[in-house]
Amino acid sequence: MSTLTNLTLKIWRQDGPTGQGRFESHQIPEISDEASFLELLDILNERLIEEGKEAIVFDHDCREGICGTCSLMIDGQAHGPSKGAATCQIHMRTFNSGDEIVVEPWRAAAFPVIKDLMVDRAPLDRIIEAGGYITAPTGGAPDANLIPIPKPVADASMDAAACIGCGACVAACPNGAASLFTSAKLAHLNLLPQGQAERYKRAEAMVEKMDEYFGSCTNHGECQAACPKEISIDNIAIMNIDYLKSKFKNRKLLDR
């Protein structure tokens, strides 16, 4: 355990969705390297409150990288410098004494700033509402072992299902696209036998809902690099082909 000294935090402050916003600098004379980055913000906030200033607003909750509530653009990277980790899993040992750390909110038209570093990510929910489910009313389910699922298929589905819905893919994408999120959700359900009945309806509905809010994928691969669960952009390819097929299959079904 050692201590980092003389850090400067340059943090975005913004009063509300329509506010102008500005950077505010704060000095951190000393912090243990065992502290997490969010604990650093906690300490800073307690200091601000005691000085009579308003605490910095940021989203956070589980602090173990699974709820997807935390966000933050730290030094130009979504979820900061550690690979495969959410902001809450960044520890101060990643930084060096004397560093200036710049913290911005995530920026996208679909993610308006609510206050300071907190943004609204509701459009991700809209995509799920459009089709990110399997219609299975409570009570009517057949025995769980009725349909065997090959292990590699279950594993691939789980890889995609690991998405925590944090929106880092959108934040990191130079185009503000949500293709990785949408494709991960699609792959999760579309790979499973249970998801086949609605596969193409789902692909069409979710892709078109995504289009209402987000930019387009131009295959930079930034989303995969920023994803705290390291979800692969191969899912985007699967989404694209499913969407194309949906345009044929859904038309056929409607014509019946």
Partner: peptide
């Protein structure tokens, strides 16, 4: 019933190689 329901809903529970 919970397990049946959750599997029908697409929860990717861990499986054996035989698919169960």
């Amino acid at each position: 019933d919970i397990i049946d329901q959750m599997v029908a809903q697409g929860v990717p529970f861990a499986r054996e190689y035989g698919g169960l």
